[in-house]
Amino acid sequence: MKLPWKKLPEQIRRLAVVSLFLVVLPFIVRSILVPSDFGKYGHYRASAVDEIIAMEIKYAGHQVCYDCHDEEVESKQAGVHKNVSCEICHGPAAAHSEDDEIELIAPRDRDSCPLCHEYLSSRPTGFPQIVSDSHEPMKACISCHDPHNPKSEKSTECEACHTEIANTKSLSKHVNIACKECHETPDAHKTQPRMFLPGKPVNREFCGRCHAETAPSDKDIPRIEMETHEEAYVCWQCHYPHLPEAE
């Protein structure tokens, strides 16, 4: 009696043995080599997450500082740096919070503050900036400004936020015109600046109040003939109101 296996051509039988072996082998190897937690949550090793979360924390977080450094925290909370985390200037503090023998850095030179406060045109308008080359170049920042609660000598009016504009305006004949003369400003703008926006002049006649031929203003103010002077444009398309002298 012939088995059905024996009925197959000899070549096929031989190849079948080899193929069967090659098909079974990977399954055996797989069951041995694949980590047992592979695929527990998805197509990955679940314990990889354990290894990642076992990493050492270096930045302790600002809450930790508040446990010991009451004085500094209190002063900081009162000022504009209240949201500036301690570790930005003092470096990662997790080790220090465990062992106060490990001292943190306290930058006192002129290199650190300009990281944020050096003038760069890319920085948002209103962010306090200086040109360090001309801003008391011989003095350390902290000799005038308390880093925990820095104060600007200037008023708390518009200039406090819109320093860049204020600085520009200070070079102009317009320096004596109060901001609110042109920008009608709701009080709530101070607390929610983006929700309550100040107004802006909308037409040529606004500038004309001073600069029109017939305006009842000071004689030295430059005049234009409103009807013929570039009548297709509004004034600030050509003249920057905060520094109209600029080319």
């Binding site: 797989r30 080599l33 694949v34 592979f38 695929g39 197509h43």
Partner: peptide, 10 residues
Amino acid sequence: SYEILLTPNL
């Protein structure tokens, strides 16, 4: 490299 055969990401 054997992982590519054992746990291929489909």
